[in-house]
Design a protein around this nucleic acid. Structure first.
Lengths: 338, 338
DNA sequence: TGACTTAATGTAATCGGTTACATTAATTGA
DNA sequence: TCAATTAATGTAACCGATTACATTAAGTCA
């Protein structure tokens, strides 16, 4: 069914049909009704794709969202936040999953551009930063979320990661720990660096010496957490507490700790990054730095939609604050451990 | 940048540019190189949207995925499965989230059709079944996943829910339980009904009388699980075991059980539906019916892609089998409880 | 070399809409 | 009632690609 056919059946011109469909121009009441009747009868559905060819100012209905791991609850809550805002604006979200692979990321972005999405929200890998900057400079609306690559003039929505990890580590120190292991994510990502920075600052502030063998990277995956604990426990002086910088690695840590028959928090205290719905169902309930994933998504989507409407302007950085949710896995205050 | 401009700059016709771009027809080596050079220099990116207007047999790069709760790990693993297969086929996935709202569902489907997605995978609500059938009859490729509405001639990929819940309940019975609470999902959905059926069959088979007050519906949300436990515990003869038919409700159950200072499995045994990455980190580790969410997604996507290539054929139902992952939350064999 | 075949390229219609401009119908006013 | 004005509708070009068909250039062979 096309406008042409509708026009023929209704006995009017394509222009009239188009006018009726868009409701803008003046059409006689009776004509409009007749056309609408045909539209209904024929079950006509407009081809937005064709429409957009002509109407350039009308953007596509689609907003892109590129994330790195849809299966990670943190990102799925980001996605939900984005989706809620986007659909509230009568748009739809096209989600792609990169698995931290820059090539997939680039492929997806190109596909989205080919498909003429109106803008994109992206959790960037480290691989395509120049490409992104070019796109934005070309006028493609884009917002980065969770990660904040340096030296880019692109809107970002991120968390104050340093503050989050600082507070977590501070808490452990306050509870008497002085050998604290740090399980980092993917090297080179802003959030990894920032979380490390918070850890270092907390230690430094308390005059605790930084030991390289207490700093381990687990690539943000569960297995990485397991390995980190194995590594820590094989030290002659293992840490008495661990700060793990994302939820999957934390889960890996906990499982490994159980496996080694160690007690939380007596043998080893733990604080994780990312609060999850199951964190309080663990025994002992897990102390976490709560990242407002949903809000990150909401903010990113709102920023993007603002950009879609207002076009260019200087780039903006939105920084949300984390919250330390204290539960029992980090132990309680005491003096002189280990 | 358009084909026209490229043609002008390269000093050839649009037809030649198109031929070079598509690599199909014969173009002189030297001409092709010259055109490609301009394409590179000008940073030209083809407008697939325009292309599709003409090339009808070439489907869009986009496959739609409509799920009901992107934030539920089960669905996000389904999404991941779909996404992996789709992107392996050099396509992209457009995900929409309905929150179980049929109106949003319909809106999204229409948007996808307008955007000319090549087909869709959907976790259907109960609200738009006729609409779906119409679409499929009109030749729109569609696969339903997780839920299997009756009387539709549409491909489905689902779980043998009845078997899953039968085995879980059977396990509880084998362990000596005779008062077993059932926490159901959303009434009217096929999976809810099937899970109930498995529960009923297991009881019947063991000659256990079915009690209506041990059957409660929690709408697949965490709060529903909490309320179910509250309701059960307020009975004069509370159940000694609970089977909860999805992960969120299970989490709610567990939290409420802890809150009431009850012991799992001594005071109350529990088996959940959906295995989650955190299930084995709970204490005691949670016995679950493992739904292969990822595989459901993979199968759905493969089925859809087959449809995209081969067109119409009789509809197919793929049924995957669940697996009971026995951990400690369901207790162990003993005789004559309660 | 020139007639004929084949390879390379160009021209213009087309997909399904929108819209500037042209045209026709209805309304107004004296 | 009829010219002038305005409202309603129609005609045709256009968006950015593809492609059937037409045309021109390059080979081939006697």
């Amino acid at each position: 069914m096309s406008v042409k056919k509708i026009a023929k059946i209704a006995g009017v011109s394509t222009a009239t049909v188009s006018r009726v469909l868009n409701g803008s121009d003046k059409v006689r009441e009776s004509t409009a009704k007749r056309v609408m009747q045909v539209v209904e009868d024929m079950n006509y559905r407009m081809d937005h794709v064709a429409r957009r060819m002509k109407v350039k100012q009308t953007d596509s209905l689609v907003v892109g969202l590129v994330i790195t791991d849809i299966d990670n609850p943190f990102f799925s809550s980001v996605a939900k936040g984005v989706e809620d805002v986007v659909s509230k604006n009568k748009l739809v979200t096209m989600i792609c999953n990169t698995n931290e692979n820059p090539e997939k990321e680039r492929f997806f972005l190109n596909a989205m551009l080919s498909e003429k999405v109106s803008g994109a929200i992206i959790v960037p890998t480290t691989g395509n930063l120049d490409f992104f900057q070019d796109l934005v400079d070309d006028g493609f609306p884009m917002v980065m979320v969770d990660r904040k690559p340096k030296d880019l003039k692109i809107d970002t929505v991120s968390l104050n990661n340093k503050k989050g990890s600082y507070e977590a580590v501070k808490k452990l120190i306050d509870n008497g720990h002085r050998r604290i292991g740090f399980v980092g994510g993917i090297k080179g990502l802003s959030n990894t660096e920032e979380r490390l920075a918070g850890y270092l600052e907390a230690l430094k502030e308390s005059g605790i010496q930084i030991k390289d063998n207490l700093i381990v990277y687990g690539d943000y995956v569960e297995e990485g957490g397991r390995e980190a604990i194995q590594e820590f426990m094989s030290l002659k002086k293992p840490p008495t507490a661990v700060f793990s910088s994302n939820n999957l690695m934390t889960l890996g840590c906990i499982k490994e700790i159980y496996k080694q028959k160690l007690n939380i928090p007596k043998d080893i205290a733990i604080i994780g990054f990312d609060d999850s719905t199951w964190a309080e169902a663990l025994i002992p309930p897990l102390t976490t730095v709560k990242q407002p994933g949903y809000e990150l998504g909401v903010n990113a989507a709102e920023l993007l939609i603002k950009r879609l409407k207002n076009g260019k302007a200087n780039s903006i950085d939105v920084v949300l604050n984390p919250e330390l949710i204290v539960r029992e896995s980090c132990g309680t205050k005491k003096i002189n451990i280990g």
